[in-house]
């Protein structure tokens, strides 16, 4: 299964998905695809000049261009996945998009998505961490069994 994660650049979550035998859909891959795309003249600095306009699919022109540029890269990840695993309220070093507005909106997109999704709070104790890992694994197993 292609499993999108939130934050989309979390190496811990990415590793967890991979260990469960699935393909993690991460921002690292999305950005590297852009760098390798033969149609893009020079490697972009995260996004291309067209991306903020592409972000208009999710946010109006009134939304800051940085939000729209981020959405152009991050939002499609959650639209093309088979399942989504999200950990909210994590510390900055767990995975960071650099913009609270984009974070709020992406969590809303995940929450209202028809794709099977699991949103959990970032664990703050070892017991909670164990519980989170178990819940993610059983969620993935359940979605995979339906597939």
């Amino acid at each position: 299964m292609r499993v999108a994660i939130y934050p989309p650049n979390s190496l811990i979550l990415s590793d967890l998905i991979e260990r469960a035998g699935h393909e993690p859909v991460t921002i690292m891959k999305e950005l590297s695809d852009r760098v390798r795309d033969a149609e893009i003249d020079s490697p972009p600095l995260n996004i291309t000049p067209e991306d903020p306009s592409k972000g208009l699919k999710w946010a109006s022109a009134e939304a800051p261009s940085g939000v729209r540029g981020r959405l152009a890269v991050f939002a499609p990840i959650y639209e093309g996945a088979d399942a989504i695993v999200a950990l909210k309220d994590g510390p900055m070093n767990f995975g960071c998009l650099g913009c609270a507005r984009t974070n709020e909106f992406l969590l809303y997109l995940i929450h209202s998505s028809s794709i099977p999704h699991l949103i959990l709070a970032y664990p703050t104790t070892e017991e909670e961490a164990v519980c989170v890992v178990q819940r993610i694994q059983s969620f993935l197993a359940e979605v995979a069994s339906h597939d």
């Binding site: 946010a59 009134e62 939304a63």
Partner: peptide
């Protein structure tokens, strides 16, 4: 409000 980022995102939804 014009230029409120949160406002524009939420209003659209």
């Amino acid at each position: 409000c014009f230029r409120c980022a949160e406002g524009s995102l939420l209003k659209n939804e």
